[in-house]
Design a protein around this nucleic acid. Structure first.
Lengths: 351, 351
DNA sequence: CTGTTAGCGCATTCAG
DNA sequence: CTGAATGCGCTAACAG
């Protein structure tokens, strides 16, 4: 029973629709749609009239209606453990930037690494009909989640994770990064190198361990299993394990911190125990942060371009969304190179 | 020309709709809608039948259609300069958390502090019909933007920004934080204290300056205008101005870094110039980061709860979205308290 | 080149 | 308590 008689030009009213524009320009709905979508087949005069009407009424397309009609939301989802993690934060920034450039909204969701929560959020995102998904699952082997993502038809690009042969992904070359780090330490004469990193249930944990092993094998040197701490990527884990390592009868002479949140924890532990870097122990961290650069001494790190990773992930996703899944049934993978940045946290070691 | 003849129960087909469920349960559309929305007025038996049909068909509500129908998207937008900034990153995390808890999607957009871009993004978000907006404009005085946000009917909550009397906002108490910092330095005997912070076009710049002035006034002490560097919050600005300050004929004996990205830049400059903290200059930073805690020496900072700020912002927004703007025409403001955390970057000063 | 028409999937009247 | 009908705003197919 509301005023349907909008023949009057009351520009104060809430929602202007295409219908209003059509009336104002004395054309039909279809014509307005055509000029809005830049169809070439509209006579210049009519086009001008419609454009004027659009300006006059202040009409803006209703994206929801468009989504309804086209079955496409122009939105991509991004589901990861914690967007505060500088690693993910930079990635998010890069990905959001390219998504935006292509007209896509960017829906962010944090799983906190809780698998139940993650599955819930995944469902929610799919329910929202996102056109594509950037995803860093907390556990690559969780059966429920694998089933879920296999059963969906929405393009998914994994970030720092992989389901081989099943899913596009973009990852950094952690294997090589840790390989280089270990090789460097080995070349400095270290023979008792500890590795602290995450479990093998996600790719970074596996790859870092692999690189570590490879470097030792290449040098023909053994690994002391007691020096391996492979359970978590948290700062707290770094704190705890560094303490534990430095309390050993024969402590390591070098530690690789395989997780970018770990350095803070490690530094706290080192300070607490009065351990000097690099005199008492050499340190290499993964992830090149302000803290690493400005700590005393500055910490040698493995670095790679996080924003670029985000941009690449978004680009692969957009490409997949275009190419209608028919061709290129091959999965598309991108590996971001890592490099080691040498600072003053490692010293030569003579046994 | 696709198969419209979905009379067959082919469960592999793409989009299950309420209509399919209705058919499977031999009820009408309306009834399915009622059980989906938990309307009490459905006979238990029928309800059970429908629920079974939902499970069998795997139906999930189409959020887009719901939005279309209800003119509500269950989405909130978040527009800020840079989500990588740890300050905003934490805020985003907190806000996303409560938005999600209330069933809202969280659409993130970064303006990079570019005002044109920001206006563009603001329009885009509104066009997407977000139900509410968390916003940290790059310039509180830009006329176009003010007009834009005044003309919209979407609830907006400003974060670390304000349009007095016009908009809800949640901010941290930077005035008090810097007041305390300056007061502390003054009590230590410092008489030449520099302040590096952002311009007065956004609230943090104004408030920090205000606190700085208040502290000096309360002590009956003058401020040397040459010690005021009030143009930017960037790390690069911190780098540049610290160098400039320490090159003065009579350099300051203490510097307040009024921006949470600034410490890294300042530390670089100090290292470069071989200035010792706190022997040569005392330092207080805003924003309590790992870097501040773990630098040598550890840096005294002004801290506040960022995630809590985000959670509060989201809560105020949700409240505003509920209370249909009629009542509480008063704007709702929340101020997050700050505290100073004393570390070893400040020393007593005798002139 | 332009007008008309038919839904997209759902929530919500209004009858029965 | 349940079924039928209507329309949210738009795009695309089809006529003219």
């Amino acid at each position: 029973m509301k005023s349907k008689s909008n023949t009057r030009s009351t520009p104060s009213k809430t929602n202007v629709t295409m219908r209003d524009v059509a009336a104002a320009a004395s054309v039909s709905l279809g014509t307005v749609s055509r000029v809005a979508n830049k169809h070439p087949s509209v006579k210049p005069l009519v086009r001008a009239r419609v454009e004027a009407a659009i300006a006059a009424t202040g009409w803006q397309p209703n994206v929801v209606a468009q989504s309804m009609r086209t079955a496409t939301t122009k939105a991509i989802g991004c589901l990861l453990p914690d967007s505060r993690n500088p690693l993910f934060a930079a990635m998010v920034k890069g990905a959001e930037e390219v998504a935006r450039r292509y007209g896509y909204a960017f829906i962010l969701a944090n799983s906190n690494g809780e698998i139940e929560h993650e599955i819930e959020l995944l469902k929610l995102l799919l329910q929202r009909r996102v056109d594509g998904l950037l995803f860093a699952p907390s556990d690559e082997y969780d059966a429920r989640m694998i089933r879920l993502i296999e059963s969906t038809h929405v393009p998914i690009v994994l970030v720092e994770r992989e389901f081989p042969e099943k899913c596009d992904h973009v990852v950094s070359n952690q294997c090589n990064g840790i390989h280089q780090a270990a090789e460097y330490l080995l070349s400095l004469g270290h023979r008792r190198i500890a590795l602290i990193t995450g479990a093998s249930s996600i790719r970074p944990g596996r790859e870092r361990f692999k690189g570590f092993v490879q470097a030792h094998e290449a040098a023909g040197l053994p690994i002391d299993q007691k020096l391996l701490r492979l359970d978590s990527l948290d700062a707290a884990y770094g704190y705890q394990e560094v303490q534990s390592l430095m309390s050993m009868e024969t402590p390591p002479t070098a530690i690789i911190l395989g997780g970018n949140m770990m350095l803070a924890g490690a530094l706290r532990a080192l300070t607490l125990k009065g351990v000097q870097v690099p005199q008492d122990v050499s340190i290499i961290a993964v992830g090149d942060t302000d803290l690493a650069e400005l700590a005393s001494p500055p910490i040698t790190t493995v670095r790679w371009d996080l924003e670029d990773m985000g941009r690449n992930a978004a680009q692969v996703l957009l490409a997949r969304m275009q190419g209608s899944a028919l061709k290129s049934s091959q999965t598309h993978c991108i590996t971001i190179p890592t490099e080691i940045v040498l600072r003053r946290s490692c010293r030569a070691q003579r046994d």
